[in-house]
Design a protein around this nucleic acid. Structure first.
Lengths: 345, 345
DNA sequence: CATGGTTTTGACAACGATGTCGGATTCGCG
DNA sequence: CGCGAATCCGACATCGTTGTCAAAACCATG
């Protein structure tokens, strides 16, 4: 299983290794004739450049890091997939690094991948994109990095996001349109800035419609299915319950829905439920859950694009490195017109 | 941001770079006194070896590849996480490579990661672990590889698996114990060998109990939630329906459960449903689904162990490279005693 | 205190690519 | 035809580490 090196190709094509290198990397200043000859030999020998040698000598690693809190979540899977595909198109590779901020010593792993792997760039997923300590690690080492849906957008970091505020507002408007007045809101974890923006969007829509938010109906969950179940119990226990619930993500919305089913509350006739994310869980029930489609994979792909783009690498901060991608309201079966609302005030 | 090299450490510690290298790699034959001195300097300077230089020189990449069909599935997430954690412990890195066998040219990506990244080993997830063409790629390049739950276990491949046959048998026995006689079975996709073994286990248990399998009740799905919905419609349409359904995975089981709910069939009173995998979906409904816990993360971790173990790398085939990990029957709310079975034959 | 054997250490040459830079070739144009 | 300016090409050093191998230091022993 002899491995083919650039020298072999050069010898066979009757040129110098450097010329082969030029052809491989698509540089200028190579006669078309020679270029083709080299390409032919490359194909014949099925030559593949050694990524390590290349990185060592060029001081580019062709590696991007994806730093993420919980790599098992469906969110992570979508993000990772989007990044992976785009990396492939750009002939980059992706290294996934779980980061658990609650575990002391997490810095070490991050430093290691920066120093040891010489990452060409980093994608930092929520919620850890809001940890200044983490961002500083990249800043200090001058590693280009893009934050996904961060709460603030530092100048020298790239950022990709969606309009959480606007989307939550749309959803709330939609619920109001359906006649709902008693709308509950289920928050995400405190450290998750997107969830805060969603709550603000919710409140803004309510305010615009001149509906007072009933604070008893604003509860905090942790994005998990289980917390949806628990909060469902809390919200749906008594007779004085909301006619609609807007949850910060789909997993919790699903938990709410299941609780409603257990309690024989008809969805959407007696209760409307809305989620956020368009996760698999929003389709894994009956009725399916009305939600906001979040462009997760697209955001990740855009992050890759920014990182790989030489013009970003050259000049940071860069004006085009702050993107906002479009979302969409996905209406499904879990929401409907507010029933006889008269009996509740 | 000067990067610290091994030379810097050597100079500061007053030894040769080679000695530093020895300390870093934990080799023998270094005086304790010098070893400590070097370690101290390493800590002081926060020196991190350059992974590329190391790989280039040692012809080991410290990289493992995870080759997987559908990297977005929950299965993939669990496997990946298990592998990732263990890789970290062993100071390896993991590169995830989606492989879509239905897309021509897939070989190219695989060859590329083998040749270009010089993978030290590969983990091949189902169902693509059953594609001889793929396995041959690794065999030809002499890349150590471990198959996850393959249908056959080639001598020169490692393998980690669970007892699909036995587990399915246990589940079926359990349903029979509950008094069920009309048990439907929902198969997985044809190319998925584990699903075939599960079916065999099901049939074996039925045969042992001397219950004839009603072939109208054996249907093929594709592991998706959607196919569970569709097959649910097919199975639960008429009055002549099974009293229990055993689905090859949890997503389909969830689909079946949702269909039952839509049709107002009480689970588990009028219908028992069992799944396989212990995926998140098995807990994302009410009642929660009885299932088989499959040690996904553990299998992936074991695969890493095998690949990293020098004794495996030295002698392939290796006797200890074929592992079977334990599963568990997880009884939850979706299964119960068979009701008044008298009215059905 | 020589002797032979074991540790311990370092000089040097890889590993396989690319950056630099100067020399060769070609081109354009007076 | 001649001459400067592009354009093309290759020799060589270099990236940061480890493998090889021989020299140096140490050890116990007779």
């Amino acid at each position: 299983m002899k491995t083919v090196t650039i020298k072999d190709v050069a010898a066979r094509a009757g040129v110098s290794p450097k010329t082969v290198s030029r052809v491989i990397n698509g540089e200028d200043h190579v006669r078309a004739e020679i270029r083709e000859a080299v390409q032919r030999v490359v194909a014949e020998l099925d030559y593949r450049p050694n990524a390590f040698a290349r990185s060592l000598s060029s001081s580019r690693s062709y590696l991007l890091g994806l730093f993420i809190d919980d790599p098992v979540s469906g969110y992570a899977a979508d993000v990772q997939h989007g990044a992976l595909i785009r990396c492939r198109e750009r002939s980059y590779h992706l290294v996934v690094e779980p980061v658990d901020l609650s575990r002391p010593g997490w810095q070490d792993h991050v430093r290691d991948s920066i120093a040891s792997l010489r990452l060409d760039g980093a994608i930092i997923a929520p919620p850890i994109c809001d940890a200044p300590e983490l961002i500083d690690l990249f800043r200090q080492s001058a590693v280009p990095h893009v934050l996904m849906a961060p709460s603030v957008e530092p100048e020298d970091s790239g950022a990709v996001r969606m309009d959480d505020h606007g989307a939550a507002r749309e959803m709330t408007d939609y619920l109001i349109c359906l006649g709902h007045r008693h709308i509950a809101f289920v928050q995400g974890p405190e450290n998750h800035s997107a969830s805060i923006r969603r709550e603000e969007g919710f409140r803004a829509a309510m305010a615009t419609a001149a509906i007072a938010v009933d604070e008893r109906f604003v509860l905090r969950g942790d994005f998990s299915f289980r917390s949806g179940l628990e909060l469902g119990e809390a919200l749906l226990r008594g007779p004085d319950r909301p006619s609609a619930i807007f949850a910060c993500n789909d997993d919790m919305a699903l938990g709410l829905l299941i609780t409603a089913i257990k309690r024989d509350i008809q969805v959407p006739d007696d209760l409307s439920i809305a989620g956020f994310d368009d996760a698999a869980s929003s389709r894994a029930a009956w009725p399916q859950i009305t939600t906001i489609r979040q462009p997760k994979a697209e955001m990740a792909a855009a992050a890759v694009d920014i990182l790989v783009d030489p013009s970003f690498r050259r000049t940071i901060p860069h004006p085009d490195a702050h993107l906002m991608l479009p979302h969409a309201l996905v209406v499904r079966g879990s929401t409907g017109r507010c029933g006889t609302d008269a009996d509740r005030v």
